[in-house]
């Protein structure tokens, strides 16, 4: 095993450990996460396998394929997070608004 493989695998194991000890996940999450961890470790141990898939998809190197997929994933995650941020902001706004109006009414009725 090379140095980079040890670093990557220990990183993934730490992430998995953190994920599992939180125990707030349902079965579906657990399955998805386990599959991801499994795939990641497989490809770290056998990097040439990504080359085979890359060639099939018309990409020169496995590393490039992984890079492209990461970009896609990044965009997807950013949009998801942004949508959630907007929902959150809307919720905060609603709470502050309701409270502000209730407070104003209370002051005026005194």
């Amino acid at each position: 095993m090379t140095g980079i493989q040890i670093i990557l695998i220990s990183g993934i194991l730490v992430a998995a450990f953190v994920f599992f000890i939180r125990r707030r996940n349902n079965i579906a999450d657990l399955l998805v996460f386990t599959t991801l961890v499994g795939t990641a470790i497989t490809f770290i141990l056998f990097p040439e396998w990504t080359n085979i898939i890359a060639h099939k998809l018309g990409v020169g190197r496995g590393a490039d394929l992984v890079f492209y997929l990461c970009i896609l994933l990044f965009v997807f995650v950013s949009l998801k997070l942004y949508a959630r941020l907007r929902r959150l902001e809307q919720m905060i706004t609603d709470v502050i608004r309701k409270e502000a109006i209730a407070e104003a009414d209370k002051l005026e009725n005194e």
């Binding site: 905060i92 706004t93 502050i96 608004r97 409270e99 502000a100 109006i101 407070e103 104003a104």
Partner: peptide, 25 residues
């Protein structure tokens, strides 16, 4: 005047909407 206070700074758009809800009531 009627005085309404947001606990946090939300922005002018939010302030106008709060004012509108209040005025309509």
């Amino acid at each position: 005047v009627h005085y309404i206070r947001h606990k946090l700074n939300l922005g002018q758009g939010a302030a106008l909407q709060t004012g509108t809800n209040f005025a309509l009531s």
